[in-house]
C-alpha cells in the first residue's frame, strides 16, 4: 500500500528542489500558453462570429467560407492541427517559401513550439468560440436589431453598439468553460517538444520511475481550473436569477444595471 501511495504522492519527489522547479517552470509555459492563446481565441472567435453574420448577398461567400472554416476546425483533433503546422513550417522554411525575415516564430525569447501551440490553439478554439458567440448573438431578441435599424443605424453599428455587447454578456459562462478546456488542451503541445507542465512531469516519471511529479502537475491544474469552474457556476446562477426575477423576460430586463457603460457613465447631473 505504501508503495502505491508513494508512486503517486511521494512528497520528496514532488518537492525535490530540481523536480519542483521543473514542474513549476513547465506550468509557467502552460499558463502563458493558456492566457495568450485564450485571449487570441476570444478575439478570433468573435471575428469569425461577426463574419458569419454579415448580411446580404454580397457577403454570402464570406459567410460560406466562415462556416466551412468553423466546421473544419471543430471537426478535426487539435493534435492534428498542431502536427500539421509544426511539421509544415519547418519544411516550408527550408524550401524558402517562408521568407528569411519572417523566419520561424521565436518571438519574445519563447521557443517555436510555444508559438506553434498558440497558433494551433487559436485556430481550433477560435472555431469553438465562434459558435458560442453565434449562440449569444442569436439569443439577442430581434426587436433589438429592429430598434437599432429604425433609428438609422447601419448593420455594423447595430452589431457593434447593440447586439454584440448584449451577446457577449450572455456568453461569458460558456466562454469560460471553453477556456478551461483550452487550458487542459495546452498539454498537447508537449507532443511537438514544449516542456510544459505535463512534459516536465513525464520526464521526471521516466527518470525516477515515480509519478508524483505528474500528480503535482495535476494539482497545479486544479488550483486554477476548480476556482474557474466555480466562477462559471456562480455566473450561470446569477443569470438564472436575473431571468427568473424578470418573469417572462421581454426584450428587456436582462442586463445588469452596470453604471459607466457606453454613454450612461459620465452623466449624473
Amino acid at each position: 500500500m505504501d508503495q502505491v501511495i508513494e508512486q503517486y504522492f511521494d512528497l520528496s519527489v514532488m518537492f525535490d528542489g530540481q523536480n519542483f522547479d521543473e514542474v513549476l517552470g513547465g506550468f509557467k509555459y502552460t499558463l502563458m500558453l493558456s492566457v495568450i492563446a485564450g485571449v487570441l481565441s476570444l478575439i478570433w472567435g468573435l471575428v469569425l462570429a461577426i463574419l458569419r453574420q454579415l448580411p446580404g448577398r454580397l457577403f454570402a461567400p464570406v459567410r460560406w467560407l466562415t462556416i466551412a472554416y468553423i466546421d473544419a476546425f471543430r471537426g478535426v483533433p487539435m493534435l492534428l492541427v498542431l502536427l500539421i503546422i509544426y511539421g509544415s513550417l519547418g519544411a516550408l522554411y527550408s524550401q524558402g517559401v517562408i521568407p528569411e525575415w519572417l523566419g520561424i516564430p521565436r518571438w519574445f525569447g519563447l521557443p517555436d513550439p510555444f508559438w506553434v501551440g498558440v497558433m494551433a490553439i487559436t485556430i481550433t478554439y477560435g472555431a469553438y468560440m465562434a459558435e458560442v458567440y453565434r449562440a449569444g448573438i442569436e439569443a439577442v431578441p430581434h426587436g433589438q436589431t429592429e430598434a437599432a435599424r429604425s433609428l438609422g443605424m447601419s448593420h455594423g453599428q447595430a452589431m457593434r453598439y447593440i447586439i454584440v455587447p448584449q451577446a457577449v454578456r450572455k456568453v461569458v459562462p460558456p466562454l469560460l468553460n471553453d477556456f478551461i478546456a483550452l487550458m487542459k488542451d495546452t498539454s498537447l503541445v508537449s507532443v511537438i517538444g514544449l516542456i510544459e507542465v505535463v512534459q516536465a512531469g513525464r520526464d521526471i516519471q521516466a527518470e525516477q520511475l515515480n509519478s508524483s511529479a505528474l500528480t503535482l502537475g495535476a494539482i497545479l491544474f486544479l488550483i486554477v481550473t476548480v476556482p474557474l469552474a466555480r466562477v462559471v457556476d456562480h455566473l450561470i446562477a446569477r443569470q438564472a436569477r436575473k431571468t427568473g426575477r424578470g418573469g417572462q423576460a421581454r426584450s428587456t430586463g436582462e442586463a445588469p444595471p452596470t453604471a459607466g457603460l457606453g454613454m450612461g457613465g459620465g452623466v449624473s447631473q
Partner: peptide, 30 residues
C-alpha cells in the same frame, strides 16, 4: 430612417444602456 420614427409594442429599449444613453446613442452615431 432619418425622417420616420417608430415606437414598438414591446418598447425594445437597449437593456445595457441607461435611459439617457438609449436616447443619446443614435444621435451621436447616426
Amino acid at each position: 430612417r432619418r425622417r420616420v420614427g417608430i415606437v414598438f409594442q414591446q418598447f425594445n429599449l437597449f437593456p445595457h444602456k441607461s435611459a439617457l444613453a438609449n436616447v443619446g446613442l443614435a444621435q451621436t452615431k447616426v
